[in-house]
């Protein structure tokens, strides 16, 4: 309950920041009675009203969210998972798809309790198979990165 209220307060702060930003949105010259400012401002007012209501009456959380409380173990895993995703995004073009997805797949496999050997095999198979499938067969271009010397 406390966390939920904290989150709602954080949302309100975000609305306030956005509302300040919205104030500045004015068309240099306007051909129409409603400018770019009105609609977002209306939404923000409604959002603030709804969020304040929730702040007073947050209601009970659904069973599935109550059943799986965030233990420190899960929290560590979540942070690691987001970190792995971010590193994957960071190296996606720098190292190329094959290398970055190989490393990323190993990390994800380990996070989901796969063994070291299975992880490395999964990473190898996935990175190569997906590259061939998407880049070569399905025409979705993927970066080769450091391996670009090898590709033709």
């Amino acid at each position: 309950m406390l966390y939920q209220r904290l989150f709602l307060v954080a949302l309100l702060v975000v609305y306030a920041v956005l509302a300040v930003a919205t104030m500045g949105y004015q068309a240099a010259f306007s051909y129409e009675p409603v400018g770019p400012r009105a609609f977002p401002l209306l939404l923000l007012v409604l959002l603030a009203a709804g969020t304040v209501y929730l702040l007073f009456r947050p209601g009970h959380l659904a069973e599935e969210n109550d059943e799986t409380p965030l233990t420190p173990q899960v929290l560590v895993k979540l942070v690691l998972c987001v970190l792995a995703l971010s590193l994957f995004a960071f190296f996606f073009e720098r190292l190329g798809f094959i290398v970055s997805s190989f490393l990323f797949a190993i990390a994800m496999c380990r996070l989901y309790n796969g063994g070291w050997i299975t992880s490395v095999i999964t990473g190898l198979v996935m990175s190569l198979a997906f590259y061939v499938l998407f880049d070569r067969v399905l025409d979705v271009p993927l970066p080769l990165g450091v391996l670009s010397g090898l590709g033709s």
């Binding site: 990323f104 496999c109 999964t122």
Partner: peptide, 8 residues
């Protein structure tokens, strides 16, 4: 298993 599914 999840460890193969989720990375995919």
């Amino acid at each position: 298993p999840y460890w193969a599914l989720v990375p995919g």
